[in-house]
């Protein structure tokens, strides 16, 4: 299928990477349910005292029960650092690491993040995610090094198939000068 209008192909990209643009890849179920322990830890890490996350009555009245802070959306699909039977580190945002490997750019940072929030994520949910590459730039030189910018989406749904969020990341993969 040819890329949609919002998806950009750069001529000097390896053919395999070109073929990824617009593809829905790595549809995965999160490794654990949304739970309050992580919600408390996240709120504590930024001193977020919003009663929605600390006061059960507030959560019941305002959101119909406990929900997770929207900004925690990526927490629920990041794999464990280790689990039984796993010999290599599992990586969240595998597409980002695939691009680093395929384009032979050993270092990478994220530069932009956009999140659109739909249905709230509720305690007990198990989320399903899909990664979609939107574009890869030509080679560019920055203060970090020479490399490429890439843009990809992560779509996140709950067990009912309701869209909870769409995250859009811009990554910059580079080689130090």
């Amino acid at each position: 299928m040819p890329p949609a209008a919002s998806e950009k192909v750069v001529d000097d990209l390896p053919v395999e990477v070109q073929s990824w643009i617009g593809q829905r890849r790595y549809t995965q179920l999160g490794e654990f349910d949304v739970e309050r322990g992580y919600i408390f830890t996240s709120c504590a890490s930024v001193q977020n005292g919003n009663p929605l996350y600390w006061d059960e009555k507030a959560a019941e009245v305002i959101t119909g029960g406990p929900i997770a802070p929207p900004s925690m959306i990526s927490v629920w699909f990041r794999p464990h650092y280790w689990s039984p039977g796993r010999s290599e580190e599992a990586l969240a945002l595998q597409l980002h690491f695939d691009l680093k490997a395929q384009l032979e750019l050993p270092e990478a940072v994220m530069t932009d993040n956009t999140i659109i929030f739909h249905e709230p994520v509720r305690v007990g949910d198990r989320l399903r995610t899909t990664q979609i590459l939107r574009s890869v730039s030509a080679l560019k030189k920055t203060k970090l090094g020479t490399g490429r910018f890439w843009v990809f989406d992560v779509e996140i749904e709950n067990a009912q198939g309701e869209l909870c969020a769409v995250e859009t990341y811009t990554g910059f993969g580079y080689r130090k000068e």
């Binding site: 001193q47 977020n48 919003n50 900004s71 925690m72 994220m110």
Partner: peptide
């Protein structure tokens, strides 16, 4: 990145 997002939400 997500820690940045959490600060903005707070």
């Amino acid at each position: 990145t997500p820690h940045n997002a959490a600060y903005f939400e707070r």
